[in-house]
């Protein structure tokens, strides 16, 4: 005989449906919230990163690389436990979670934004400047309308990853989907069914989004 026979039974989870639903709600909230805050931050940092001044660039590069070159899990734990000690103010887990997720994804958005802008041909800058446009006009009228197209695909990819990233804030007891799964597991001692269900829920949310992203990407390619 190999293995043990395990009687899979998902029916008990029905009792916990509201808990799971609340978890989904938090996961979506954290995803959407951190995408919005991250986008604002990323646009700001991305624009400033175009500056030629080292004085402006150095702190921004430090921020971007700090968040890109350390694991998100470490950042979450550090911000929840170490950061409050450092600055001497208490931060609830829900705030720390949103803060770190936004800072993290903002660093990636900033690079996507900057990459889109600097990928534009120099000739576009030349032509716009030659008719007398000022720097901000060149960006607004000529560079950004074209660069945005190049940013959309990486932006969607990063945002999809971001939804999965939210599961990491379960470590600081933010009651998103994975954390709810952990709660249910400790109450029922049935981790197999619970985590299988949690995984399926993530998949059910992300798979359609991924398909949608592919459609958008194809359309963008056609329009070029």
């Amino acid at each position: 005989m190999t293995g043990v026979t395990y009687n899979w039974d998902f029916s008990f989870l029905w009792m916990y449906r509201w808990l799971l639903l609340k978890g989904i709600g938090f996961t979506v909230l954290y995803t959407v919230g951190s995408i919005i805050f991250g986008l604002i931050l990323g646009l700001l940092v991305g624009v400033l990163r175009l500056s030629k001044s080292w004085f402006v660039n150095l702190p921004l590069i430090a921020y971007i690389e700090a968040f890109r070159c350390t694991p998100l899990l470490v950042q979450i734990i550090w911000f929840y436990y170490a950061f409050p000690v450092l600055v001497g103010l208490d931060m609830p887990a829900v705030v720390a979670g949103m803060l770190v997720l936004s800072l993290y994804t903002g660093a990636f958005y900033a690079e996507i934004f900057r990459g889109g802008v600097i990928s534009m041909e120099r000739g576009q800058w030349d032509a716009a400047r030659a008719i007398g446009m000022r720097y901000v006009q060149v960006l607004r009228r000529v560079i950004l309308p074209q660069a945005v197209k190049r940013m959309i695909a990486p932006f969607i990819n990063q945002s999809i990853i971001q939804l999965k990233n939210t599961s990491l804030v379960s470590t600081i007891a933010v009651s998103e989907l994975l954390y709810q799964g952990q709660l249910i597991t400790s109450a029922t001692y049935r981790p197999l069914e619970t985590y299988t269900t949690v995984a399926l829920i993530y998949f059910a949310i992300l798979f359609p989004l991924t398909l949608g992203a592919q459609v958008v990407e194809r359309r963008l390619q056609k329009s070029n």
Partner: peptide, 21 residues
């Protein structure tokens, strides 16, 4: 930037690779 833009506005230029928007 402003001075340069004003200067260029009165000097037309046509490029090898057209550089249309």
């Amino acid at each position: 930037d402003k001075q340069l833009a004003g200067f260029r506005a009165r000097t037309g230029m046509v490029f090898q690779l057209f550089n249309l928007f």
